[in-house]
Design a protein around this nucleic acid. Structure first.
Lengths: 333, 333
DNA sequence: GAGGGGAAGTCATACGTACTACTCGACGCA
DNA sequence: TGCGTCGAGTAGTACGTATGACTTCCCCTC
């Protein structure tokens, strides 16, 4: 064995004075009744001495499985994916699976080149908030989509985004609001389309309901400008419904710039309930999406799929969390 | 070929009426002068028809390399790692390498079980903000540590955290502050230790400088309590130096709860300059750490290491960003 | 017509592991 | 003594790919 390359099971065998088969049996833990305890100990000590670690590529080839699942996300910047990962990894670990994360920006093309993705030595894919066609290049690999269009090719686990939005509007309507502004993420993701549609439908169903819309990037400065445009209208909204919590932070700033008090002069809502929601002042009324459970359920579904089953579509309800950023509209006489 | 398993290069060969070698040559792109254009086209069409995708495990085993690098991070929740990934992935892609992210919580033990980490089919490790001993189980795998103790076993790329902290204190001292409070992250990471030491040293070097410290988790509520404890002291600080931007959000809330204006009655600073910093009101004075460049330089160093070189330690300076959360202390008569 | 040489492919092998099927000896029992 | 059985271990092979060594055929030149 040259000093430069890692020791193999054959090196361990030589060191321990046994055959490679025996090393594999011992280290694989399946030696009961086949190898004497003394020999087994000798093998383990030899492995230890040489610092042996099995070659994963060889294992994977031999076993035909990697017991590794890929979590595909469009970005690492959104804090939302932390809990999703946590839930998925917890379930996976319980079944002896590992999880690697791969970032697949929305603007990347489909994985059409057969050699484009060297990290693909995986058994399955958990794709969160991804465009449907991102999976195009992975045909043949079992996949479950999270928080994505259920009309796509793979089984999905979703949030009850539409219900959450309805609850939000009902809450605001109950406070007396009728004129709404939508600070909308200009991102082509299923979840945002659903949010927009549910919001429009809920407001339309409200007697006297009016909705204006303004788009922005997922970033506070851009959201601030979008909110400012809405507030500059001749008939400004009394409530700003923002597509996520970070956009709501931008709305806060637009309000303050105009000298408007939140929630006295303007109600603001977020969506997702990430850490930021309670860091803001006032704390943000938002819809809590059970992100960790999304990851956990998604992984459960994927493991079922890998086991040959057919997971059913699953919807996790969002829950309205009323905090300090919403209140009755000021009556202008 | 059973319908259930994926087609191999041998299946493609049969479909195209050539040998497996030829398929490998064509799809590997090394057929110039060895295979006729017509045959090559036939092979590619056959591969397309069957939906062939090469088995990565077999490739990896044969080639002895995966051209994949693992980015190890302690959490996905911190927005800080998004840019780090982006920088690393950009450089990696330029060299034909892929990047997978693996989460390794601070409280996880070293990877000592030889079978614990199935995701390890990788050529190298980029470990960001990790405890030094997290690499213990990966001995033999080339690694570069980011934003970690340079006294560790692997080459490092660091931020000039100490310099950044010194600049911050100089800025506050220039405004007239002498009594400082440290809202400190109770996390055993190198970067936080350096921040604490640099802060303590800078304040001690200041004539009349006083420093109080209060610890918290990396989370707004906990930070709020820590800040409140500092502000409840008989001689409360006039400036709160927070270990990162999220903690500063907690400090804001503690201040407002006491009716203190930021920056009129109390100056607050953050660290890192993540998205949140400009979402807060007032916008946060902080130290900008070039996270994307950290990822890029780290990957450059790792690729150098993989190529047999010896990268030098590299320090990326942080830059003070003065925004609206700092001002001269109110003089109490 | 012999022989060189290039174009177009194929053969065979190795990568490191896991595991089935085998060997070999010792022991128990009739 | 002969035979079955069991314990302890090994030989050999397959997983799917990439590639160096080889073959075959045809054309060209002397």
């Amino acid at each position: 064995m040259p000093a430069t390359s890692r020791p193999t099971s054959r090196d361990v065998a030589q060191e321990a004075g046994v055959s490679q088969s025996t090393v594999s049996l011992v280290l694989g833990g399946k030696w009961a009744g086949r190898v004497s305890p003394a020999t087994a100990r000798g093998v383990r000590e030899a492995a230890e001495r040489l610092g042996y670690r099995p070659n994963q590529a060889a294992r994977n080839l031999r076993l035909g499985t990697t017991r590794t699942v890929m979590l595909m996300v469009p970005t690492l910047t959104a804090p939302f994916f932390g809990p999703v990962y946590t839930g998925a990894a917890r379930v996976a670990a319980g079944h002896g699976f590992g999880v690697v994360v791969h970032v697949w920006p929305d603007d990347a093309g489909p994985a059409d080149s057969p050699f484009a993705a060297p990290h693909e030595a995986i058994d399955g894919i958990l794709a969160s908030s991804m465009a449907v066609d991102a999976l195009a290049g992975f045909r043949g690999t079992p996949a479950v989509m999270l928080d994505s269009d259920p009309a796509g090719p793979a089984p999905t686990v979703e949030f009850g985004v539409a219900d959450g939005m309805r609850d939000l509007v009902a809450h605001l309507a109950g406070l007396g609001h009728r004129r709404f502004g939508h600070v909308a993420a200009a991102v082509d993701q299923w979840t945002f389309r659903v949010r927009a549609e549910a919001l429009a439908a809920a407001v339309a169903a409200l007697p006297g309901g009016v909705l204006a819309r303004s788009e922005c990037a997922i970033e506070a400065t851009s959201a601030r400008e979008a909110a400012a445009r809405l507030l500059a209208r001749p008939d400004p909204p009394t409530a700003l419904v923002c597509d996520d919590d970070l956009l709501a932070a931008g709305a806060y700033k637009a309000a303050r710039a105009l000298g408007l008090d939140v929630p006295g002069d303007l109600s603001v809502t977020g969506f997702d309930d990430v850490l930021l929601a309670t860091a803001l002042e006032p704390e943000l009324t938002t819809v809590r999406l059970p992100a960790e459970e999304l990851g956990a359920r998604g992984m459960t579904a994927l493991l079922e799929l890998l086991g040959g089953g057919r997971p059913r579509r699953c919807v996790l309800p969002g829950r309205l969390v009323v905090r300090g950023s919403t209140g009755p509209p000021r009556i202008v006489l």
